[in-house]
Amino acid sequence: MAEPKLLGGVEAGGTKFLCGVANEDGVVLDQVRIPTTTPAATLSAASAFFAKAQARHGALAALSIGSFGPLSLRATAPDYGSITSTPKVGWSQIDLLGHFAQTLDVPMALDTDVNCAAVGELLFGSGRGLDTFCYVTVGTGIGVGLLVGGVPHGGANHPEAGHIRLPRALGDQAFDGICPFHGDCLEGLASGPAIRARWGMPAEELPPEHPAWGVIAEYIAGLCASLTYIVRPDRIIIGGGVMQPIDMHARVRTALHKQLGGYDSSIAELDMDAYVAAPTAGDSAGLTGALAIAHRLVTRQWPMHWAIGAQQNSVSTLSKVS
């Protein structure tokens, strides 16, 4: 009888690392939430988790990591597998794959957190049945994951659409933006920290009638217009803390329809309610996507059979390493 194929996954975020071990049917057997502090402390805690999980459940067959970035994903690059010039203090030039390779001799994959979340949406959420779609997160940063032909797209490296420049929203010309690299790129204008810097309070404290929401919707719609013209996806899924107000997706749809201007009948006829969607795969979509990529490393195919069991056994309750 063949040995069970145990899979390891990491969702490496700027606030927390979610680590999990699942069986080949997508059932999570062990999991932990680790606060993102220093690289040494955070990565050591993650390695300790996988050591204990393997002692309980057996050896891993593969490990996949979905991380905040930017990342070096070209295999021939000298810093392949590393976080590069990130705004996250203390985390630039951290070799993620190299760290885990010190203790795990298994196939490994590294991709962006947004690409992993997109895979989670492909399996369980708003991306089901779609060939090509974008996953956008608007929170502490702005990231875009892209699935083309049902697989994450990387090209020479991963997309960084959160750092494009867009026309300034009406009445917003005076704000310089907060991106340490570009100033008034999209992330520098429309991320959660940009909202706090411009209006003096976090997004979750702004009242629904605050003019900030119209400005932010205009910028996110500008990103969606660019993605529409460049990628022509089947859908754009937008999540993240800044999108939490109940009418934000409607605001973005209205602004996007106006910005597209009726150009090209196939675009003009888009059903905006279906085209711009909220994520529905749940808070653990990123870790689920990482585990699915680990499954693909072993089997060369997506675990479409997880569609019932895995979501019910996904990361809903987490032990915590403090």
Rank of each mutant, 00 (worst) to 15 (best):
I308E: 15
D172M: 07
I34A: 06
T288V: 11
V10H: 05
L146Y: 01
Q301W: 14
A290W: 03
A40C: 09
L6A: 06
P39W: 08
D172E: 14
E24D: 13
H158E: 05
G14N: 08
D113Y: 11
M243T: 06
A59R: 14
V136M: 03
G90P: 11
Y80F: 12
E24G: 08
H182C: 03
Q259M: 06
T132P: 00
D111W: 07
A203H: 09
A255R: 05
K320E: 15
Q244C: 12
E160T: 09
G26W: 07
D273V: 08
Q31L: 07
D234T: 10
A268N: 01
L7P: 09
A101R: 09
V215M: 03
F181P: 02
Q93C: 11
L123S: 10
S322N: 15
E205S: 14
H99G: 05
V32Y: 04
H305D: 12
I220H: 10
A12S: 08
Q54V: 06
Q93K: 07
R251E: 10
R74E: 15
T132L: 00
A225P: 06
G98F: 02
R251T: 09
D30V: 09
R235Q: 09
V151P: 12
A290F: 00
H257M: 15
L104G: 11
E160G: 03
R128K: 11
D79A: 05
T228W: 10
L104S: 10
A225V: 13
A118C: 09
D247R: 03
G8M: 08
H99P: 04
Q173G: 11
D111S: 01
H257Q: 13
H163P: 06
F133I: 00
W213L: 06
G155I: 09
